[in-house]
């Protein structure tokens, strides 16, 4: 286990107050310790942590483009292997870089089987450039390129299931986590680092600016996503789901009504039809991963 008492991610970075991605970077460096090389794609995290010449990272860090993040990480990993060095290589990118633009290089690096860890901080849109939809944007979320209005109910496509795609590449370890559970994030990153081969951890990082909620609610919103079944925390080893975070599920409204990006589902009047579709997505998630916790009542019989 890495020595994680010292702070390797400096204060003074330019993230919004209450930023989920900033917490991801801190937790990442808690898990890796100082013997690591970070490859960072373009995105919010790159922009807020490294306006030249002031970097928040106290470890070796290289910036790549949106699209070639995994290719740069592959090259570094191959060079370190040739030199017999033991540093870990971690590539980190947002959902835009991971799900859309960097998909080609990510798929290539996983297929070639490089020994590195890819972290995706998933804030469910291109936040850095002003909240455009990405492949990770959930169904019905309003963004600047999928605005809700008279003819549109927001993003009309469901979220891409990237963990399954990468597991299908034969990745030995694929996991999803949420910053609402910080020690779980650290544990999963450590496990990914210590698993040989390409590993992937997707971390749900609520974005107060892009999703439209107060900064102090960042972790509470993350928790609600899990409690409603719209985000599932699981671990997959060699393509098999081995661990799932179980919850007593709440209706999806409790998650949706907290965020401005779903406001059009409640105002001017409640759009029950669309909310039912989102509830169906949550039900499907719960069924697929078996997240529903069965509570035993005191008198004996099992109630859902």
């Amino acid at each position: 286990m890495a020595e994680n008492s010292c702070e390797l991610f400096d204060s003074g970075h330019r993230a919004c107050g209450g930023c989920g991605a900033a917490l991801v970077s801190r937790l990442l460096l808690k898990a890796t310790g100082k013997d690591v090389i970070i490859v960072s794609a373009t995105g919010c995290m790159e922009v807020f942590s490294t306006p030249y010449p002031e970097t928040a990272w106290k470890v070796p860090w290289i910036h790549s483009l949106f699209e070639n993040n995994s290719a740069v990480a592959s090259g570094i990993e191959a060079a370190l292997k040739k030199q017999g060095r033991k540093e870990k290589v971690v590539a980190i990118g947002g959902d835009g870089s991971t799900f859309d633009i960097g998909m080609l290089c990510l798929s290539g690096a996983f297929e070639r089987g490089h020994d590195f860890t890819y972290i995706c901080y998933d804030n469910e849109a291109y936040m850095n450039t002003g909240i455009q939809r990405s492949g990770a944007t959930p169904y019905d979320a309003s963004t600047t390129t999928s605005p809700a209005g008279k003819c549109s109910k927001g993003n009309n496509r469901p979220k891409k299931d990237l963990p399954q795609i990468l597991a299908a590449h034969g990745a030995p370890y694929v996991a999803t986590a949420s910053i609402a559970y910080p020690s779980d994030v650290v544990k999963k990153i450590e496990k990914a680092l210590n698993t040989p081969g390409p590993c992937y951890v997707q971390i749900h990082a609520p974005c107060c600016t892009g999703w439209g909620f107060e900064g102090e609610k960042t972790l509470a919103i993350g928790k609600l996503a899990i409690e409603t079944g719209l985000w599932v925390n699981f671990e997959m080893e060699n393509g098999v789901v081995t661990r799932v975070k179980k919850v007593v599920r709440k209706p999806v409204e409790s998650y949706l009504k907290e965020q401005k990006r779903f406001r059009h589902l409640f105002k001017p009047k409640i759009n029950a039809e669309e909310i039912a579709k989102i509830q169906a997505i949550a039900d499907k998630n719960a069924e697929k991963y078996g997240t529903d916790l069965k509570l035993k009542s005191k008198s004996g019989p099992v109630v859902p």
Binding site: D10, S11, G12, H13, R14, G17, S49, T50, Y52, P53, E54, T55, A56, W57, K58, V59
Partner: peptide
């Protein structure tokens, strides 16, 4: 300000930015 080889910035310089004023 002092820069490293290849004009790389020194690690952990973000502290120059006093975000408390926000």
């Amino acid at each position: 300000m002092a820069l490293g080889i290849g004009c790389s910035s020194r690690p952990g310089k973000a502290g120059n930015n006093k975000t408390g004023s926000w």
